[in-house]
Design a protein around this nucleic acid. Sequence first.
DNA 1: CTCATTGCAAATAATTTGCATGTAA
DNA 2: TTACATGCAAATTATTTGCAATGAG
Lengths: 160, 160
Amino acid sequence: MTAPNLEHFRTLLHEHMAKRGLRSTDQRRLIVETFFQSPNHISIEELLAQVRQQDSRVGYATVYRTLKLLTECGVAFERKFGDGLTRYELADEESHHDHLICVECGKIVEFEERQIEALQEKVAERHGFALKSHKLEMYGTCPECQAKATARVAAAKPRN
Amino acid sequence: MTAPNLEHFRTLLHEHMAKRGLRSTDQRRLIVETFFQSPNHISIEELLAQVRQQDSRVGYATVYRTLKLLTECGVAFERKFGDGLTRYELADEESHHDHLICVECGKIVEFEERQIEALQEKVAERHGFALKSHKLEMYGTCPECQAKATARVAAAKPRN
DNA sequence: CTCATTGCAAATAATTTGCATGTAA
DNA sequence: TTACATGCAAATTATTTGCAATGAG
């Protein structure tokens, strides 16, 4: 849960760009820095809205292209949860986390579990896979929504 | 790895349909039975191709609608791996499995790991979640693609 | 100068929906 | 007979791409 090391990611990105002769533009810098300061699991829409608060002329395509760039150089991860849109998060390996998702309200809770990670490595090894990344998502009802459900039942069927 | 209990799923579906006054048509039966006999992780395209071998007049929309029906009544699960399409699998809780996915060739290997499942329950409990389902996907390089990569490197840089 | 980048609009791709017609119950 | 179901084509949604103009190195 420590703050991510943004310098590391900036370096990764710059190296990747240098290697390919890509250029550093106002839009790219703005999108990247906005992404760095956004909450996790941000969508293109949300990110574009943030970006446009600084520069209203940035287009969708540029955000898509920049996020693809970040994904390619290992700075961001793409994630698809149940809703139809792709969300992005910092590829922060150091504090790698998985997700608990509430099927009622859509809330996303992050967690980390070393033992699970260790077991994953064992499984991959057993199948001869060289592991690059993983994704563990657990779907269920969060405490709040469970309470609401209980309240609904109580209201619908009052004791006489 | 035992054969799934199809009768159980047929009952689930019939109950769901009865409850809602839905009807049993030739197309639905054909699509459902084809789905039951298909390999796991089938896409709409693939399923439609199979279905059309029996009845070439079935349309996309009907397959989409039927798979949505199966998903709603808990007979099928929707899954989105990296490629842009939704794949479906039997919601076979008994033999619940997770996935190892090769990032080179797209191969999907299923596995089961009781200890991981147990730890998942513990994590959910810790956060007060009532777990419904989960999804664990591990991405890496399969043994074959690792071998191919090694061969490529050897060819590109021969020892003199 | 040269070539990558941008914004726009048009193109794709996957999925959903409206509607006239067909058909279980 | 009464809705539900179907097939088609059109609509929607998310994402990608072509292209002329712009701008970084």
